[in-house]
């Protein structure tokens, strides 16, 4: 997967992961892929919800230990 930009949101609590995702996404073009890594348990549900509501596409999401990684394609 071609990742255009990576956002490290580790250690940040709600609502920072979605705020960071939004800010990063604003700088990308349609079709670009944003990778975002979070350690917030809520982000597991929140980032997919944010993706859907913002009109983007969740390509993949993985979980390793307490780290959640998401790949989101800009819509």
């Amino acid at each position: 997967m071609n990742v255009t930009k990576t956002v490290d949101a580790k250690g940040l609590a709600c609502p920072m992961p979605v705020v960071k995702a939004k800010k990063a996404m604003d700088e990308l073009q349609a079709g670009d892929v944003l990778e975002i890594i979070s350690t917030d348990k809520g982000a597991k549900a929140d980032l997919p919800a944010w993706t859907k509501s913002s009109g983007h596409e969740l390509v993949e999401q993985t979980e390793a230990g307490n780290e959640y990684t998401f790949w989101i394609k800009k819509g």
Binding site: V18, V19, K22, W50
Partner: peptide, 8 residues
Amino acid sequence: ATGAAAMG
């Protein structure tokens, strides 16, 4: 408020 703003 900040969450909603992040959701556009």
